[in-house]
C-alpha cells in the first residue's frame, strides 16, 4: 500500500501538468478520492500549473484583431435567439391546437409525442452544446470503419455526448445501442443512437447512472429493435476515454 501511495504521489506533478498517460491518470483519480495528503499536494501543483498560464511576458496581438472581433460580434446572433424561435414555434402549435378545437384525441396524442420527442432532442442538443462550451469537457476523436466523430466526456457531471458522422441507418428491425464499459469489461446500456436520414451525423447524450469515472469506454453494437439487456449483436465501434 505504501509503495502504491508513493507511486501515486510521484505522479501528482505530471497530473497537474496534464502530462500523465491516460491509464495512469485514471488510476490516480481513483486514488485521489480517498487520499487527503495527495489531494493537498496536488492542489499545490495545480496552483503552479495555473500560474504557468499567466507567467509568460504579455504580447499584444495586432490592432486589426480587435476590429475583426468587433465586426464578428456585430454579425453574430446570440445563441438564445435560436431557442426562443423554437419555443415560439412549439407554443404556437399549442395555441393553434386550442383555437381550432377540432383536432381528434389521436392527433393530440401524436402531436404530444412529437413535441416530447422534439423536447428530448432539444435537451440533448442543448446539453451537447453546453458540454462543448465547457472548458472541463474532454474531447476524444475517433475514426473507425468509416464512422468518424467525437466523444465529449464530462466526468464531473457524468455526461457523455456522442457525435458520429456517416453512421448508416440501422437495418430494418435493428437499432444502434450504446454501452458504457467498465474496467472489467461489463456493459451498461447507455441508450440508443438513431441516425437521421436527412443529416450526415448522429448525436446522443448519455447521463450516466453511475459515476462516469467508473467506466473506461463507450461501445456501440447493433441490436434488435427495442434494445438488449446486454450486447448481443456485432460491434460498431468502441472508444476508450
Amino acid at each position: 500500500m505504501d509503495d502504491m501511495h508513493k507511486t501515486f504521489q510521484e505522479n501528482l506533478s505530471a497530473y497537474a501538468l496534464g502530462a500523465l498517460d491516460t491509464d495512469e491518470a485514471a488510476a490516480l483519480r481513483i486514488h485521489l478520492q480517498t487520499c487527503d495528503s495527495c489531494r493537498a499536494e496536488l492542489a499545490d501543483y495545480q496552483r503552479v500549473s495555473a500560474g504557468l498560464l499567466a507567467a509568460l511576458p504579455p504580447k499584444a496581438p495586432g490592432p486589426a484583431l480587435k476590429r475583426t472581433l468587433q465586426k464578428r460580434l456585430a454579425a453574430r446572433t446570440r445563441p438564445q435567439f435560436k431557442w426562443s424561435w423554437s419555443q415560439v414555434a412549439v407554443s404556437g402549435a399549442f395555441v393553434l391546437l386550442i383555437v381550432l378545437n377540432i383536432v381528434s384525441i389521436s392527433q393530440v396524442y401524436s402531436l404530444s409525442e412529437l413535441q416530447a420527442e422534439q423536447s428530448r432532442e432539444r435537451y440533448a442538443e442543448q446539453t451537447a452544446i453546453a458540454m462543448l462550451a465547457y472548458p472541463g469537457t474532454q474531447s476524444i476523436s475517433f475514426n473507425q470503419d468509416g464512422v468518424a466523430g467525437s466523444l465529449l466526456v464530462d466526468k464531473h457531471r457524468n455526461l457523455l455526448a456522442v457525435f458520429a458522422w456517416h453512421l448508416p441507418p440501422a437495418p430494418a428491425g435493428k437499432t444502434y445501442q450504446m454501452w458504457l464499459i467498465d474496467p472489467q469489461g461489463d456493459r451498461t446500456s447507455g441508450g440508443f443512437l438513431a441516425p437521421e436520414a436527412d443529416q450526415p451525423f448522429s448525436m446522443a447524450v448519455i447521463a450516466s447512472p453511475q459515476p462516469l469515472m467508473s467506466f473506461v469506454g463507450l461501445g456501440i453494437t447493433l441490436e434488435p429493435s427495442g434494445g438488449s439487456p446486454k450486447p448481443t449483436g456485432p460491434k460498431v465501434l468502441r472508444v476508450d476515454f
Partner: peptide, 19 residues
C-alpha cells in the same frame, strides 16, 4: 498527437487570484 490532458480547468482556474 492527441492531447492526453487530464487537467481539470475548474480546479485550475480557482488557483490564481484576480489578474
Amino acid at each position: 498527437p492527441l492531447l492526453s490532458d487530464s487537467n481539470d480547468p475548474d480546479t485550475l482556474w480557482s488557483m490564481i487570484p484576480d489578474g
